[in-house]
Amino acid sequence: MTRHLLREHCFKILFVLDFYPEEETKIQIDNYFESPSLEDEEDELIHDANYSDVDIEYIKSKTMLVKDKRPEIDQIISELSQGWKLERIGRVERNILRLAIGEMKYDNDIPVSVAINEAVELAKTFGRDESYSFVNAILSKVSMEE
């Protein structure tokens, strides 16, 4: 599985976790990996459940890194999104930002420019029309602090 697809799965899990209390984290992650592949009406793959053990480990470890660092990451988002309370930022954008900032700050294997580019691509795919601009602006501020 490509790094982009692995990152997309991490985002989807983080998005799902945003709807549940923290004590359900393990259950929700397990449910995610037990869900079958799913296609839409045009036979386009929506959820690819073909994971190797290595893929599952990568997705889980990156997701848990972001989840464990969430208070610090949310503080960064709050400080840099002037005029926007964290709760007002859409769940899609909020979790894309969490994932990217987690990679930028706590994952030395991912170059900052790659984390930003991948986040913008996720925002174009899953966010609203101008989500990618907001995500790019916040992440650019984060990168300037590096």
Results as ranks from 00 to 15, higher is better:
L14H: 02
L97W: 05
I56F: 06
I96G: 02
I116E: 03
T63C: 13
E87V: 13
M144R: 13
P21C: 01
M1I: 01
E130C: 06
K67E: 14
M64I: 13
G127R: 03
F19I: 11
Q28N: 07
D53M: 10
L5F: 15
K85D: 15
S78T: 10
I89L: 04
S113P: 03
S78V: 03
E93T: 06
K12H: 06
M144V: 06
N117P: 03
V92Y: 07
F126W: 09
F134K: 00
V135Q: 08
I76D: 08
L86E: 07
A115P: 01
M1K: 09
V135C: 11
N117C: 10
D53T: 12
I101M: 02
N117W: 07
G102S: 03
L122A: 02
F126M: 00
D74I: 06
M64P: 04
Y51W: 11
R88D: 15
Q82F: 10
L6S: 06
F19C: 08
G127I: 04
L122D: 00
M144W: 03
G83A: 11
M64A: 11
K67V: 10
K26M: 14
Y20F: 14
L17Q: 05
V112P: 12
S37H: 05
F134T: 01
S35I: 05
K69R: 15
N95V: 06
Y132F: 11
S133I: 14
S113G: 02
E103L: 01
I13G: 04
V54H: 12
D74F: 00
D109Q: 11
D30K: 04
A123E: 02
E39W: 12
I96C: 04
E121M: 14
Q75M: 12
E24L: 13
Y58E: 09
F15S: 04
I29E: 02
L86H: 05
E145T: 10
V54E: 12
S78A: 13
E130Y: 12
V92W: 04
A137W: 15
I96T: 00
Y106D: 02
E24I: 02
V120F: 01
D107Q: 12
R3Y: 14
V114Q: 06
K26E: 15
E118Y: 08
T2L: 10
R91E: 04
N50A: 14
V142G: 04
Y20G: 00
V54Y: 14
E23R: 08
E121G: 01
K124M: 08
F33N: 08
E44R: 13
E146F: 14
Y32E: 04
E23N: 15
W84C: 07
S81N: 00
D43A: 11
L97K: 01
N108V: 10
V142W: 02
E41C: 11
I76V: 15
E146H: 15
E57D: 14
F11E: 05
A119Y: 00
D74W: 00
M1C: 12
Y20N: 09
N117D: 12
G127V: 06
F15G: 03
L97N: 00
F11N: 00
I29T: 02
E23A: 10
E44M: 12
Q28R: 15
K62I: 13
E118L: 08
A137V: 09
A49Q: 09
D129H: 13
V92H: 03
K85L: 12
S131M: 06
K12C: 08
F15W: 13
P36F: 10
N31C: 09
V142H: 03
I96K: 01
A100G: 01
Q82T: 11
N31Q: 11
E146R: 09
